[in-house]
Every structure is written in C-alpha cells, then in structure tokens.
Simulated assay, not measured.
Amino acid sequence: MKTSHSTSKRLVRYAATFSAFILLSIAAKLHAAEFDHSYTGFDQLLKQVVQVSKDHKQTRVDYQKLAMQKETLNTLLTVYSNVTKSQYDTWSKTQELSFLINAYNGFTLKLIVDNWQEFTEDDAESIRDLGSLFTTPWEKKFFTLFGEKHNLDDIEHSMVRKWFKEPRIHAALVCAAVSCPPLRNEAFVADQLTLQLDNQMQLFLADNSRNEILLDGQNGQASLSSIFKWYRGDFEKGDEGFNSLFDLLSAYSEALVEGDNNPQEQRALIQRADYPIIFKDYDWRLNDVANF
C-alpha cells in the first residue's frame, strides 16, 4: 500500500509539473501574440516625421516635429523594452530581425530627441557630439532591451551582426547622419523584410552623393560610402551571395548607374570586377530636414 501511495503522489507531482509547463507555454505564446508585428504606431510616426527627397533616394527627419511627439515615441519604445528574450525567441527570424532594426532606428531617434536642446542651442550638430570623453554615443547605455540596459552598439554588433547573416542591414540601420542610408518612412515588417532590405540597398547605391561609378576613358573606379569600408568583411562571407564588394555592386548595377550619363560603359566596368574601390568622406551632420 505504501508503494502504491508513493507512486500516486509522484504521479500527482508529475501531472502538476506537466500542467504548469503547458500553462507557461500557452502563456508565452499568448504573450508573444500580443506584440504588434505590423508596428502600426511606429509606422505612423515615421510617416509624419521622415521627409523624402524629390528623387526618392534620400530622407531627412523633422526632429523639431518629432520632439513635440516625444511621449508618443517613448510609449512606442517602452513596448519594445517590455519584450522579453524568451518572447523574442518564439518569433520567426524575419520577425526577430525586423524588431531589432526598428529598435535600433527608434532608439537612435530617441537619443537625438532626448538631446534636442543641444542641437537647437548649437551645442551639437552631429550625433557624435552626444558622446563623452571616454564613451561614444553608440556606447551609452540609455535604454532597456530584453530586461537589461543596452546601447546602440549592442543591437548592431552583438545582436544583428552576430545573430543574422544579412549584410544588407547596413543599408537599413540609420545612425542619424547625413551620409547614412535613408531612414525609411515606414517600419520594417516581417512579411516585407526581404523586399524592404533590397529596396534600401538599391536606394543607397543609387544615390551618387553616397555611392557612384566614376569613368576615366575605358577605366574607372567605384567611389563608395565609408560604410562599405568599415563593414567590408560582412560582404565577403558569402552571405546573400556576396563574396566581395564587386559581387554586391554587380548585383545592384542597375541602381548604381540609374540616371547617370554613361550607363552602358559603367555596367561594363562593373562586370569586369577588377577596378579600384575608394571610399568617400563621411558627412556626420545630423540627418535633420535643415540639412537636406
């Protein structure tokens, strides 16, 4: 009888443990389902404050208007901060990457808005001016993510570049400088992410102020954004089919020659894949509408 009673108690404990596990699993799924992967609020805010150039290749942010909606931005970012790592891990890869890109861009906007008075009083003209003697602005831990204090470098280098094999993110993460890729006037969403990343790279490479093919008779060179110098290695790992910057430029050759005077000669140069690549100086001025 004792053995039977002991067995019954173990079965009850096992059943209780299993039931608790099921309930926790259901709760996690319900919690995950609560997150708005359409980013409706963030999307609406971006549409209000991001201005697109006439040629659709550049954008600027109306930070004065955004500063007047600071609480709206903070409320949206609080939702991001409340996401737990266990909740995040239940999402698809495209949902995860969309979240991190939106978080990086959103918290960058917050960094500027939180220090907007410095810009209006001419104490700062670049995001780099928001650092200190020993800390860059990208190293400042000013927001919470996954239950811990983080900085922008954490999102870019310790999460996005570490967890994903997607070099096109360098056309999507925007650090609030004029020479950065254009900040998209819509949120990144999972079911459109591949198209959005592709479009971002097209826009970035099509803008001659950032990237261009320069001809000199039968020869020539590519003059590219310094982003491709800093992160060249990310385009040499075979991810997305890119084993070199030549592969990237070949894949986006139509964007590179868009609107140029000698597209046929430029295409021929790009296909040769043996031309010099130089890198442009980076314009760190704030990507504000005043700097359009």
Rank of each mutant, 00 (worst) to 15 (best):
K2Q: 09
T3I: 06
H5Y: 08
K9L: 10
K9T: 06
R10D: 15
V12S: 13
R13G: 00
Y14G: 14
Y14V: 14
A15D: 13
T17S: 10
S19M: 11
F21A: 15
L23T: 06
L24Y: 03
S25L: 07
A27V: 02
H37Q: 11
S38E: 00
T40G: 10
D43A: 13
L46E: 10
V50G: 05
Q51E: 15
K54G: 14
K65Y: 06
M68Q: 15
E71N: 03
T75S: 07
Y80T: 01
Y80Q: 02
N82S: 05
V83Q: 01
T84L: 02
Q87C: 07
Y88G: 04
Y88V: 05
Y88T: 01
Y88Q: 03
K93M: 12
Q95P: 00
Q95M: 01
E96I: 01
L97K: 09
S98G: 15
L100H: 12
L100S: 10
I101A: 03
N102A: 01
N105E: 07
L109G: 07
L109F: 01
K110V: 04
V113T: 14
V113A: 09
D114H: 13
D114L: 03
W116V: 13
E118P: 09
E118I: 05
T120L: 14
D122N: 12
A124G: 10
A124D: 11
A124H: 01
S126R: 06
R128I: 09
L130R: 05
G131W: 00
G131M: 07
L133W: 13
F134H: 04
T135V: 11
K141L: 03
F143T: 05
T144R: 12
T144L: 08
F146Q: 09
H150F: 03
M159L: 15
M159W: 13
V160W: 03
R161W: 08
R161C: 12
R168N: 14
A171K: 10
A172H: 11
A172F: 09
A177I: 12
V178F: 11
V178P: 10
C180W: 08
N185S: 14
A187V: 02
A187C: 01
F188I: 06
F188R: 03
Q196A: 09
Q200Y: 06
Q202L: 06
L203M: 11
N208C: 06
N208I: 09
R210C: 10
N219S: 10
Q221L: 15
Y231H: 05
G233C: 04
D234H: 02
D239P: 00
G241L: 07
A251F: 06
Y252P: 01
S253A: 06
E254G: 02
L256I: 12
V257Y: 03
E258R: 12
D260V: 00
D260M: 05
N262C: 13
E265H: 05
R267M: 12
Q271P: 01
Q271E: 14
P276F: 09
I277R: 08
Y282M: 06
D283P: 04
L286K: 08
L286H: 04
L286D: 10
N291T: 07
